[in-house]
Amino acid sequence: MSDDPFLKIVNGLVAIVLGVGGTAALYWVLNFLVGLLPGKWDRRIKPYVFVGPAVLVVTVFLIYPALMTVIFSFADANSINWVGFQNYVDLFQDKEFLGTLFNNLLWILIVPAGSVIVGLLVAVLADRLKALPERIAKSVIFMPMAISFVGASTIWGFVYATRFAQGDKQIGLLSAISTSLGFEPVAWLRIQTGSLNDLLLIVIMVWLQAGFAMVLLSSAIKGVPDDTVEAARIDGASEIQIFFQVVVPQIWPTVIVVFVTILILVLKVFDIVYVMTGGRSGTSVLANTFFVELFEFGDAGRAAAVVVVLMIAVIPVMIYQMRQFKKQEAR
């Protein structure tokens, strides 16, 4: 492929025309061919023409590779010889990996709850403002949603930056505050005491996800019928009682949806850790360990075992999702 940006754009345009046009043509041709069959067979087969390509795509790009990954996790670094459960045994005897699991736990304990709390707070407070200030406040909180994890890491890297030389002025906000209070400059992302460096990374994720929580919770709060709130007010309930006893129970299903969605996202967290620390100083998480095992140590077996652990962690959430969906359909 060429360096020339013009050729690249042409390339992209060709892909759009061929890809989208080609796919459309494929559907048209298949539909036409099936249409030639007698009526009964036409009706029986046509649904598979519509659904087939999507199923084919998820089979090739998700299901088949997932199964292969499970198989690779029982093989050695180059996926040549079987090693049984050795990769898993090695992982769980590795102190660093156990630390990684602990970090993942820390992330999933703090980020979903933290985002929901901030999101709920903003949703409730903004609801009491006039229309314009409400929109501005929400946009400010929501804006990080549009920023990539790498972009967010840059933004926060700047907050956490520290300069150590005598007489240097601080350029990072956090260090500027701490040194002006008389503390010595420290490298924030290396402090392992109380998992402080993990927590500083986690803050970034809450900063990114709170807006998402706010949007969904805000629309749920606006959906709470006024008369239920009014009735409680007439009964003499305080605003705080109304919130916890009238509003929260009614928006609870949304709270759960937000919580689960962020949980799924957090289980796979990668970019922030990879960019900010590379997993050093005890900050690694599963997805980062996977990447390091695969591309730095070249061990496809251990890397596969790491993602299988991740997949197992996701299974309860998956079952929950499917159940929820069935319930929703039954209604």
Partner: peptide
């Protein structure tokens, strides 16, 4: 399903 399972 985490995307990572598909990579290798």
């Amino acid at each position: 399903v985490p995307l990572q399972v598909a990579f290798v």
